[in-house]
């Protein structure tokens, strides 16, 4: 346990050090992108990994929050109103999504969320009087909480890091809580959960709301980061990207979506320097991971390491018995 805490502290320190270690703004911005997408992926993972409900409409949820913030700011409201409005809009939309899509599970759930996501995209694209259509809405300023300006790359990174750390902590607490256990139960055995006295629908609904809250937070970060929002951010591609982050990193793990977000953002930025478009690669990674490493990179790597660890220990007979007993448990 202490090793874990030490690793965690080291990771946080490393994240804090990023703007100091990297002086080039471009890379600090990429780090900010990774963190804000990680918040989005963490939210999606609650539903996909822990709830077993694969959503292909989550970009619609973050997108509604982005648009609400941009719209309110463009209408002359302050940042507090914009952020509160964005969260409210995101949550109301999430409740609508949940009410409609939770009538189903499995493949039907995917189709319904996909269709709902497309509705939101269609509105963003066509409801020109509100959304300005394909031209999108620009955001003039970033907020300056407590007098700290987020206008610079470093300032924005710090703010995003704080939000990201809160999101990770919230997810960690959530998945280890009794409610988190109940959610995982509805993923594995919904029928049994019902027979044990759990309200499966309502558990899924609240999980969806939590997931939507994180999506909305990511949407707000997104619109402030880009200082712009357009329908592209709500397209099916964006939802699929989020799903790729979750699945590539490892659905149902805390670290997985973060690693997945880093992978996708880095590949996207590095590759876009060489190829104009990177959708082909996105699709190819998707297919390869689903076919060859369905559990995702984090659990997959852990598994490989375990195998390597065991085979490295095997030659010495004296320690073989110790290796056979699970770590941390006293030998009988």
């Amino acid at each position: 346990m202490t090793v874990r805490h030490a690793l965690l502290a080291a990771a946080i320190l490393a994240l804090i050090a990023v703007p100091y270690a990297i002086t080039e703004q471009y890379y600090v911005n990429i780090a900010s992108q990774i963190l804000l997408y990680a918040v989005f992926a963490l939210g999606l993972n609650i539903l996909v990994g822990y709830g077993g409900l694969v959503s292909l409409g989550h970009a619609g949820l973050s997108g509604v929050a982005s648009y609400a913030a941009a719209y309110l700011l463009a209408a002359g409201h302050g940042h507090v109103v914009a952020i509160a409005g964005a969260l409210a809009a995101g949550l109301v939309t999430t409740a609508g999504f949940a009410a409609l899509s939770l009538r189903a599970s499995g493949i039907s759930f995917i189709m319904i969320t996909l269709a709902l996501g497309e509705i939101i995209w269609g509105l963003a694209y066509r409801w020109i009087s509100i959304t300005n259509g394909d031209n999108g809405i620009s955001v003039a300023t970033r907020p300056a909480p407590f007098g700290l300006s987020l206008a610079s790359a470093d300032g924005f990174y710090d703010a995003t890091l704080i939000v990201f750390l809160i999101a990770v902590a919230a997810c960690a607490i959530f998945v280890h809580s009794p409610f988190g256990a109940a959610l995982a139960g509805t993923r594995d055995q919904p029928r049994r959960m019902n027979a044990l006295g759990f309200h499966v629908w309502l558990i899924r609904f609240w999980a969806f709301m939590f997931s939507g809250l994180l999506s909305a937070v990511a949407g707000i970060l997104f619109v402030y980061y880009n200082e712009f929002i357009s329908p592209q951010a709500l397209a099916l591609t964006a939802s699929a990207e989020g799903l790729l982050m979750v699945i590539s990193g490892g659905a149902g793990t805390l670290l997985g979506p973060v690693v997945g977000a880093a992978l996708v953002v880095i590949v996207k930025n590095v590759v876009s320097a060489y190829i104009a478009r990177w959708n082909f690669l996105l699709g190819a990674i998707f297919v390869l991971i689903v076919v060859f490493m369905p559990e995702g990179l984090v659990p997959g790597t852990v598994r490989l390491f375990r195998v390597a660890w065991r085979s490295a220990r095997r030659p010495k007979p004296a320690t073989a018995a110790a290796a056979a007993t699970p770590a941390g448990e006293p030998k009988p």
Partner: peptide, 11 residues
């Protein structure tokens, strides 16, 4: 947990 009000506790 199924019979405990704790099942709604996410904290």
């Amino acid at each position: 947990l199924g019979l405990s009000p704790l099942r709604w506790n996410p904290f």
